[in-house]
């Protein structure tokens, strides 16, 4: 292969490091998005034998939002392999023990159950808060967009803006708010 073609090959098969903020996102919805990037299915050069998957770094995994009653009712199964080693852990218990596990299991479940799955999972890094090790953060060059809206909290908006924002109605002055 000539020098020019070699460089073109490096450019086309370059592995991008993406970052994804899991704050207030549904882990199963975001797992579908993340798995596409991990497997390389977001690239038009995709082929299962191509090894074209990208690296995804998930941050704020402690702040994920499960739907409805799932925090109390969803249970994760684990068997140690020994007799009597089956255990069912509820989502909130698992999250307290290890805040990265829920999204990791969600991504594992979203992928196809073939032999490439474990290898592809090694390309996923999950951190429970914003602190990411420097050598990983240096490689990150792109961001994956979230699917759910993260609304800004009222006390995070500056006071002047809140006062100037147009109102449809206002309470009377002698109204007592509980």
């Amino acid at each position: 292969m000539s020098a020019a073609k070699r460089v073109q090959q490096w450019a086309t098969f370059a592995r991008t490091w993406h970052i994804f903020d899991c704050k207030w996102q549904d882990p199963y919805e975001s797992a579908n998005i993340i798995k596409k990037y991990l497997m390389g299915q977001h690239k038009p050069i995709y082929h299962p034998l191509n090894d074209c998957g990208d690296v995804v770094v998930c941050i704020n995994s402690r702040e994920i939002a499960l739907r409805g009653d799932e925090w109390r009712k969803r249970a994760y199964f684990h068997h140690t392999g020994y007799p009597g080693g089956a255990s069912w852990t509820l989502a909130w218990e698992l999250h307290n023990k290890d805040p990265t596990m829920i999204i990791k299991k969600a991504v594992y479940r979203a992928m196809k159950g073939n032999l490439q799955r474990r290898h592809t999972m090694q390309r996923l890094f999950i951190y429970h808060e914003e602190n990411v090790p420097e050598d990983i953060m240096k490689n990150v060059s792109s961001q994956i967009r979230q699917s759910r809206l993260v609304p800004t909290r009222l006390d995070h908006i500056p006071e002047e803006e809140v006062k100037q924002y147009p109102k449809v109605m206002d309470y009377p002055k002698d109204y007592v708010l509980k």
Partner: peptide, 13 residues
């Protein structure tokens, strides 16, 4: 199937 995946990926961009 492969062509479909590739076209979907390119469309998503």
């Amino acid at each position: 199937d492969l062509w479909n995946t590739r076209i979907t990926a390119a469309c998503e961009q």
